[in-house]
C-alpha cells in the first residue's frame, strides 16, 4: 500500500470518527433540549394526577396516582370550571365563524375584483396591524362601558361585547393570507363560469369556497386557538367569575394559595392545553407553511 493511500485511509476513518462524535454530541444536546421543552408538560401531567395536590409535596411519578384533583376541580362551587370551558368555546367559536366569513369575503373582493382604492386599502390594512389593539385597551374598555349604558347586552360583562372587540381585528393579516390562497386558484375557473352567466356571489359560494375549504379549516382552527388563548381583553371586559373565559379563570388560581391549589390548577391546565396541543402537533406542517408565507422566498 502506498503511503498516500494509507494517509487517505486514515484521514477518511478519522473523518468518519469525527462525524460520529459530532452526531453523538448533537444527540446529547437534542435530548437536553427535549427535557427542557417537555419537562413542564410532564410535570403538570403528574401534578394533575398527584392526590396530595400541593406544590411542595409533588413528585414526578406520583405514588398513588388518581383523579382526585379533577373531582376537586369539577366540584368546587367557587370555580365554575365547565362554565369557563363553555364560555371559551362559545366566544372563540362565534368569533372564528364570523371573522372567517368577513375575511374570506373581503379577500374575494381583493383577489377577484378590481376597484378604486384596492391597493391603498390592502396597504392600510397592513399598516394598521403595526398597532396592536392591546395598546388601546383603556379606550376599548371605556367604549364598551359606554355602549353598555345604551345597549346592556353589549356592555361590560357580556360575551357579545367581547366578541365584537375580537371581530375588530378580523380585517387584518388574515386577509392577506386568504387573498394569497385565492390568488393561487386559477382565474380560468371563474372566467368559464362567468361566460355561463354566473354572478360573483355564485362564483364565490359555489366554485371558490369548496376549493378553499381545506385552507379555511386550518385558518379557522388557528383563529379559534388564537381567540381561545387571549387573556388581556377578556380580563378587562369580564370581571365576574361566572363570565370568565378559561384563560382568565385559570389565572384566577394564582390569586390566593396557588401552592395549595396546585393539583386542581394542573388538572384544569391539562384540560385546557391538551386538545390545543394535539391539534397543533397534528397540523404542524400546515402551520409552518402558513407562518413562513411572505417571509421565505420560495
Amino acid at each position: 500500500m502506498s503511503k498516500l493511500a494509507s494517509t487517505y485511509q486514515n484521514l477518511r476513518s478519522s473523518q468518519r470518527f469525527m462525524n460520529r462524535v459530532s452526531l453523538v454530541i448533537k444527540l446529547v444536546i437534542a435530548v437536553i433540549l427535549v427535557v427542557f421543552s417537555v419537562f413542564p408538560v410532564l410535570w403538570i401531567f403528574s401534578a394533575a394526577l398527584d392526590p396530595t395536590s400541593q406544590l411542595g409535596s409533588q413528585s414526578l411519578i406520583p405514588p398513588q396516582a388518581g383523579f382526585q384533583n379533577f373531582e376537586k376541580l369539577f366540584n368546587d362551587p367557587l370555580l365554575p370550571f365547565w362554565k369557563w370551558v363553555w364560555n371559551s368555546i362559545k366566544v372563540s367559536g362565534i368569533t372564528t365563524i364570523l371573522s372567517i366569513s368577513i375575511t374570506t369575503m373581503a379577500a374575494f373582493a381583493f383577489s377577484r375584483l378590481r376597484f378604486a382604492g384596492r391597493i391603498t386599502m390592502l396597504k392600510a390594512i397592513l399598516l394598521i396591524q403595526v398597532f396592536p389593539n392591546l395598546l388601546a385597551l383603556v379606550a376599548i374598555y371605556l367604549m364598551i362601558e359606554q355602549t353598555g349604558h345604551i345597549i346592556p347586552w353589549l356592555g361590560l360583562e357580556t360575551h357579545a361585547g367581547l366578541i365584537l372587540v375580537y371581530l375588530g381585528g378580523s380585517m387584518g393579516i388574515n386577509i392577506w393570507l386568504m387573498k394569497g390562497f385565492l390568488d393561487t386558484i386559477p382565474r380560468a375557473i371563474d372566467e368559464a363560469a362567468m361566460l355561463d352567466g354566473a354572478t360573483n356571489w355564485q362564483i364565490f359560494t359555489q366554485l371558490l369556497l369548496p376549493l378553499l375549504r381545506p385552507i379555511l379549516v386550518v385558518v379557522g382552527i388557528l383563529a379559534f386557538i388564537g381567540t381561545y388563548g387571549d387573556f388581556v381583553l377578556a380580563r378587562i371586559l369580564l370581571s365576574k367569575a361566572e363570565n370568565y373565559t378559561l384563560m382568565v379563570g385559570l389565572a384566577l388560581f394564582t390569586n390566593n394559595q396557588f401552592a395549595q391549589n396546585w393539583g386542581p390548577f394542573s388538572a384544569g391546565a391539562l384540560i385546557g392545553a391538551l386538545p390545543v396541543m394535539i391539534i397543533y402537533l397534528a397540523l404542524q406542517d400546515q402551520i409552518a407553511g402558513g407562518l413562513t408565507v411572505g417571509a421565505v422566498k420560495e
Binding site: I225, G229, A251, G272, V276, Y280
Partner: peptide, 12 residues
C-alpha cells in the same frame, strides 16, 4: 417534541 412549548396556550 421540541415544538411542544409552541402548542400550549401561553397563558397556561
Amino acid at each position: 417534541l421540541l415544538l411542544i412549548p409552541y402548542t400550549i396556550p401561553s397563558v397556561i
